[in-house]
């Protein structure tokens, strides 16, 4: 008999969730309330706020004069456990910093998002603060990001 009452109680809980959520969501749906009642985040339109320390896609920073902060020291490539960073350095003839990257590629398909490159960078040139999680591509090669794609915020 106790079991029977517990069963009824269970029904009560689910029924309460159902009715409360139905009420709240109906008000929200017709625009009378801002409380949705449910936890669903309707993804493409709504986005959950990312935490400031979350590690997502990389970004290459620029100096005040528009030059890349990166001096192609290969520290990130050295620290990278996935070996996904490819850098080609070249001489920067007009700048007191003699070196700049001609090519800076990150294979995001291989990247493990560990953030070691950010830690390793002596120039604060690379960060993972682009809070964009979307990285779907039809070709693997499209996941190899070059300087142009990496400097976009």
């Amino acid at each position: 008999m106790k079991l029977f009452w517990e069963a009824i109680k269970g029904l009560g809980i689910t029924a309460r969730h159902l009715i409360v959520n139905l009420w709240k969501f109906s008000l929200y749906y017709v625009g009378l309330s801002r409380d949705k009642g449910v936890v669903t985040v309707e993804y493409p339109e709504e986005r959950r706020e990312t935490f400031p320390r979350v590690r997502l896609r990389h970004r290459l920073l620029r100096r005040e004069d528009g030059r890349l902060r990166c001096v192609a020291c290969f520290m990130c490539a050295t620290a990278c456990p996935a070996e996904c960073i490819y850098i080609e350095a070249e001489e920067d003839p007009d700048h007191p910093l003699e070196k700049r990257p001609r090519q800076f590629l990150i294979d995001l398909g291989k990247c493990a998002y560990c953030g070691f490159c950010v830690e390793a960078c002596p120039e604060d040139a690379i960060r993972m603060d682009v809070h964009i999680p979307e990285l779907a591509e039809y070709e693997r090669d499209n996941l190899i990001y070059d300087i142009e794609k990496l400097t976009k915020k």
């Binding site: 969730h17 159902l18 959520n21 139905l22 969501f25 449910v38 936890v39 669903t40 309707e42």
Partner: peptide, 13 residues
Amino acid sequence: KESALIQDRIGAN
């Protein structure tokens, strides 16, 4: 829809 609301979700919409 009912299962969604019981589980604090929205359900197919």
